[in-house]
Design a protein around this nucleic acid. Structure first.
Length: 469
DNA sequence: TCTGGGGTCCTAGGACCC
DNA sequence: TCTGGGGTCCTAGGACCC
């Protein structure tokens, strides 16, 4: 805990849904749900209009549909979210060199490193007001909630208090009074399992948590968690804002619409995932020693099998071969709903295979039977709801929905007013996926005057890159 | 119509080493 | 011929976060 309120936490309000409403004017003021749209999808973000109907993050999309059938259900456009996130993070770094992103829509900023003259409550309140205004302008209308306090704990809790579009500064010395009446679940790290353990010893609020001894807490929730909670209950938190964090693992996983049993199919899918993971490793110039296969069975039980190599690898065939070996150790006969491949124990990228074992895209060419089955099972739809498209004569728009050989498009962008809704054949050559950044940079922002600024070279989505959330 | 995907951190037992 | 104790690595599972 610092003497001055110099830790700031920003959280963009209903982030994914807000970006969709920005880029799709007809959805402004309407319920929007972003997440998986398949039979086993869950909600990533719901707009506040959808939350009014009881739609929440992590709820199954099926339940969200029943609660709010008239909402727009969209798959995520992560390139767009990453772009907006980048804009926000740049803004924060103008405020202070010490910025710690927690996710695309959240970050801590250390104002002590910002060289401010005035870190009084009034001073930092003014800083936050300016930040919210700048953020609103730079993002084309998004809102963020800001919390400021003497620690990460307090700043994070504060940003949540007046959502959306909130601004809460917790004056030094008032932290414990703020926390005491709150439920223990406000403390990050206290989820359902920990809350239940605490409930069993009569602890529901932070005030009650404060009355438990450290030894007792360690007995109830374990060593690390217990000691941490003992301090958090007293708002005793001096964790630093850490700007650069290195990745510890890279992984890919997919849940399938139906449970899979066929061995060759599972192996073919693992090959694809191994290719994806190693491609990401190579792009990041990383390699790893431990390969992990994750399997979720029909009964939702989750199993992992891992193996550590003597030297790090980023080789697709090495990872694929290990993945096949590892899955053989799991009884998958009852059906597999999720399959994943991960690599951890990361090292800076090392040149390997000096003797010419060159990379190949995939290792499935020798199994054409599985290829067909893979194509049937893979959920990447060519036209997923929400994706950006362009029609030769009607111009830019986005996919409302598709099915039975038809795709319905709403013609509008952030700048063009809502236009017509039209339906096409899914193989209409005049309709193509639209690369990011060509129409969706709002006017009157710094980016608009400098076209290339808002258009990162990686922002072009491949046609088949419609991976569901 | 149950329960995503990408991560981080912790625990606990066994192997292995000094 | 009763056997300590610490440290580190590996593996599997689980809680939690957004």
């Amino acid at each position: 805990m610092r003497a001055d309120p110099t830790i700031l936490h920003v959280d963009l309000d209903a982030f994914f849904a807000a970006v969709e409403q920005r880029d799709k004017p007809s959805l402004r003021g309407k319920p929007v749900v972003v997440g998986g749209v398949g039979g086993r999808g869950v909600v990533a973000t719901a707009s506040y209009e959808a939350r009014a109907f009881g739609v929440r993050s992590a709820m199954s999309t099926a339940e969200a549909r029943s609660r709010c059938p008239h909402a727009a259900f969209l798959t995520g456009r992560f390139d767009a979210y990453r772009e907006v996130s980048g804009t926000v993070m740049r803004l924060l770094r103008e405020l202070s060199p010490l910025v710690e992103p927690l996710s695309l829509d959240e970050a801590f900023v250390d104002l002590a490193a910002a060289g401010l003259d005035d870190v009084s409550v009034a001073g930092v309140t003014e800083v936050a007001r300016r930040l919210k205004r700048d953020l609103h302008e730079a993002t084309g209308g998004l809102h963020g909630s800001v919390g400021i306090g003497t620690s990460k704990l307090v700043a994070k809790i504060a940003s949540d208090l007046e959502k959306p579009d909130g601004l809460v500064v917790v004056p030094p010395g008032t932290e414990r009074d703020l926390l005491r009446p709150m439920r223990v679940t406000v403390i990050p790290g206290v989820g359902p399992a920990t809350a239940e353990r605490l409930r069993r010893v009569g602890v529901h609020t932070v005030a009650e948590l404060e009355r438990i001894s450290e030894d007792e807490l360690v007995r109830v929730v374990g060593q690390a968690h217990g000691k941490g909670l003992y301090r958090m209950a007293r708002a005793d938190d001096d964790r630093p804002v850490v700007a650069e964090r290195e990745a510890k693992s890279v992984s890919v996983e997919d849940t399938y619409d139906t449970d899979l049993v066929d061995r060759r199919l599972l192996e073919g899918l693992l090959d694809r995932q191994a290719a994806k993971v190693t491609e990401r490793l190579r792009k990041a110039r990383l390699s790893g020693r431990t390969v992990t296969v994750k399997v979720r069975l029909h009964d939702f039980s989750t199993h992992t099998r891992s193996l550590t190599l003597a030297a790090p690898t980023d080789n697709t065939r090495t990872v694929a071969r290990l993945a096949r070996t590892l899955i053989a150790e799991v009884d998958t006969s009852g059906g597999v709903r999720l399959l994943g491949v991960g690599v951890s124990g990361l090292a800076d990228w090392i040149q390997e295979d000096l003797f010419g074992d060159t990379e190949e895209a995939a290792d499935t060419a020798d199994e054409p039977l599985a290829e067909e089955a893979i194509a049937r099972v893979t959920r990447g739809r060519p036209w997923s709801p929400g994706m950006d498209v362009e029609h030769a004569t009607h111009g830019p728009g986005w996919v409302w929905g598709s099915g039975r050989g038809r795709v319905t498009v709403r013609f509008e962008t952030a700048e063009t007013r809502p236009g017509p809704v039209k339906t096409f054949s899914t193989d209409d050559p005049d309709l193509v996926p639209r690369p990011r950044g060509r129409y969706d940079v709002p006017p009157d922002t710094p980016e608009a005057g400098v076209p290339e600024a808002g258009v990162p070279e990686a922002g072009v989505a491949a046609p088949d890159d419609a991976t569901p959330l």
